[in-house]
């Protein structure tokens, strides 16, 4: 029993890391630009479809690299062409814009790649199980944990250790101040949006062999990602990570004990967090609540 629970936790960590990758992009874009990106799920979908397209020609690892690059570029273009012109407007408009983009993207995927789910399996080297003692763990899931942890670390180092990253973080607290300091905030926005898109693309790519590749895959991950952002606290990198892990683990454990409630339990957690700590676990008081 205890072993099964350990396995479920490892499994939950794998799911949690995917959610964290999604949530980081959402939360930083939200904190810095006040944009709720409803198309974030579509970027995740595009990441997965990049992999299935290049997989046969390039193999798995190059495809895994191609996905965030391709989706990151798409993110840069979206931000530059569509979102930037309407920053000055009510945040409602960017929300609706990305809502429309999400609808468009899903159908474009259907037109280009078809309606049917794409067969996608982990590469030979990573498929099957790894026995740790007597305990079997999915090799691919361990791989997901390692890769996404590395990526989260890199992102964190960028945000905390580089000049540019610190400016981004400062911007999430007070973007007027950053503007006043004479920093070209538009460029910063584009960059951050691209980065968020790339992370979503990577999450989709990593998820492709285990969560299925189909046109609607983005809408199944966007809601838990939103919940992660709220639980972790808007604009908080650490919140995205901790929030992602806790949601992932809770979903996995719920399957072991109350399978029927496995997707309602996330919202119970959300309500609890809001009651006890309305700004989210790592949220800063006052940020975004005015």
């Amino acid at each position: 029993m205890a072993f099964t629970i350990l396995q479920q936790v490892v499994n939950g960590v794998a799911l949690g890391m995917l959610l964290a990758l999604m949530a980081v992009g959402l939360t930083v874009v939200l904190g810095l630009m006040r944009v709720i990106n409803m198309a974030h799920g579509a970027l995740y979908t595009l990441g997965a479809y990049t992999v299935v397209t290049t997989f046969d020609r390039w193999g798995f690892l190059p495809s895994l690299l191609a996905a965030p690059i391709a989706v990151g570029v798409i993110g840069l273009v979206l931000e530059g062409v569509l979102i930037r012109p309407i920053y000055q407007r009510d945040p409602l408009h960017t929300l609706l814009l990305t809502f429309g983009l999400a609808l468009i993207a899903e159908d474009l995927v259907r037109i280009v790649w078809g309606d049917a789910p794409y067969p996608m399996s982990p590469p030979e080297l990573l498929s099957g199980i790894l026995l740790l003692g007597d305990l079997p763990f999915s090799k691919y899931r361990l791989f997901v944990i390692v890769v996404s942890a590395a990526l989260m670390l890199l992102t964190w180092m960028f945000l905390a250790r580089t000049q540019l990253g610190r400016t981004v973080l400062a911007g999430t607290f007070d973007r007027e101040m950053v503007r006043v300091l004479g920093i070209r905030i538009n460029l910063l926005f584009t960059l951050v949006f691209g980065l968020g898109a790339a992370l979503a693309g990577l999450a989709g790519a990593l998820a492709s062999p285990i969560r299925g590749v189909f046109p609607g895959m983005g809408s199944s991950i966007i809601m838990p990602s939103f919940v992660v952002v709220i639980i972790g606290g808007m604009g908080s990198f650490g919140g995205a990570l901790i929030g992602g892990l806790s949601v992932g683990i809770i979903i996995s454990l719920a399957v072991e004990f109350f399978p029927a409630a496995s997707d309602v339990v996330v919202f119970v957690l959300l309500a609890l967090v809001l009651l006890v700590r309305p700004r989210g676990l790592f949220g800063v008081e006052g940020l975004l609540s005015r």
């Binding site: 099964t4 479920q8 499994n11 999915s138 285990i210 299925g212 199944s220 979903i251 399957v255 072991e256």
Partner: peptide, 10 residues
């Protein structure tokens, strides 16, 4: 459901 891992572990 897209992730059956938890069920399969069980």
């Amino acid at each position: 459901t897209s992730d059956f891992s938890s069920y399969l572990i069980k």
